[in-house]
Design a protein around this nucleic acid. Structure first.
Lengths: 248, 248
DNA sequence: TGAAATTCAGCAAAAAAACGCACAAATCCA
DNA sequence: TGGATTTGTGCGTTTTTTTGCTGAATTTCA
């Protein structure tokens, strides 16, 4: 097989499968691995593929730029935009932490007058940027990783609040397994929040739907509203709609 | 599976769930935990994740705390260095906020085991970087400017704590006028802290000595220790020494 | 504190890459 | 045409990379 033919074939395979192995190609085309390596090197030189140890990857295999940015920011902004519309002047709003909640915080209208109650220090910082919003921080022992306050004191404080709305950043959710998480203390806090709020709103990128973690927070029936970046009639959301959750 | 594929997978998982366990990944990808650990180390090296004992965390939530150029950092570091020596294992330490306190927080020995109680969110963030330190956040309404929690609830919570040590960042101090400040709510918090601590330590750059603000916190007699960047026998400190304050 | 989990350092085996070289096919040039 | 040159390919050897493992050191947690 001619060099050009091989190159075309390899390129096709890479774009088809997002990855190729040198050993695999060598077998398929019946040339030495050396030749394959040289081919891959050339294609990589031309910028058509990304050469790695053992084979090559498709160009669309992003791994470089997305580092600093929050994962899936655009999706989260879409979600935040929908969520903001639920908040009205004078409301008491309970929120957890997480990057989606942070987006929500940044997107609050400047003239909104409401009270936000949170256990998340980063979220509190964000809320503090809004002059008209009153921020209540729930105090207790600080969990190092998530930077939220946790403990009996926090739980009981949360339960003393009758909130109009409760926004939960989501870790994992499944129509059958319900809302789940992997951090014991976070689970406790979320449970308390759910129990004391009139409306429970889950903010979740669609990627986290139909997944589950070890610890259960609640059944999907306890959730009133689910907000994802998808359009409300999306097929992926059907199971949740069937359970009686309002989809935005 | 290629190394780059694994990296992409891991990164995806971390960003999705904010946290991954080495053991989990090892099982999912079907490679040894050693390999996972090396992968995590590499990704951490590139700053894409934060490696911790047992797994890794998402780095996306490390914003908010911009250590902007602090006025007179060197002086404040000198002060912090002296202050650190007062803290011993097992102590309960109350602190306010402020940049000097932040320096103190950064300078705490890694192996110090103590409990820090604070109303200052920025300070809490700094303390949270120390694995052996337990951080208690006092909750209440958040004061937007200073990012500290203030209010009756906070005051009464502070008074319930019997602290060994109390570090006060200083705004203005004078041998005759005592400790003063210009923020009503900060004054309340500081008063409460003084009243419930065995030892009261004031951290102040010398520039703020011999000045006064409108609101009085306490007389100098109630202060046990004064720490400045000056040598203890400095002339400027004489009036305070005469009032019976220990100078470091 | 002590047991369990995790990490670290160093080693060894396997896989892959790099390198030098030989050789054949294609190309060029007088 | 025929020899010189370039190009492409494969082979053996050496290097490098990757991976898993062992045992000691460290950290975590009850």
């Amino acid at each position: 097989m001619l060099k050009e033919e091989r190159h075309a074939y390899i390129l096709h395979q890479v774009n088809l499968h997002n990855k190729v192995l040198s050993s695999h190609l060598s077998e398929q085309i019946q040339v030495s691995e050396d030749t394959i390596r040289r081919d891959l090197a050339e294609l990589a030189q031309e910028g058509k593929i990304i050469k790695v140890h053992g084979g090559a990857l498709s160009n669309s295999f992003h791994l470089g730029i997305t580092s600093q940015d929050v994962y899936a920011v655009e999706d989260k902004k879409t979600i935040a935009l929908k969520a903001v519309q639920l908040i009205q002047d004078g409301m008491f709003v309970l929120t957890t932490g997480g990057t989606t909640i942070a987006e929500l915080a940044r997107m609050l209208p400047k003239d909104l007058q409401a009270t936000f109650i949170t256990v998340s220090l980063p979220a509190a910082f964000e809320y503090a940027n809004h002059p008209n919003i009153e921020v209540i921080v729930i105090g207790d022992k600080l969990a190092k990783g998530s930077k939220i306050t946790v403990g009996g004191e926090a739980i009981s404080k949360i339960k003393m609040i009758k909130a109009d709305l409760c926004f939960l950043g989501n870790n994992a959710m499944d129509a059958n397994d319900g809302l789940t998480d992997n951090d014991w203390e976070v689970v406790q806090v979320k449970r308390a929040m759910i129990s004391t709020s009139k409306k429970v709103v889950v903010l979740s990128i669609s990627e986290k739907l139909d997944t589950a973690e070890q610890l259960k927070i609640c059944d999907v029936e306890e959730i009133d509203i689910l907000i994802t970046e998808l359009p409300p009639n999306s097929k992926k959301l059907q199971p949740y709609r069937k359970k009686g959750i309002q989809i935005l």
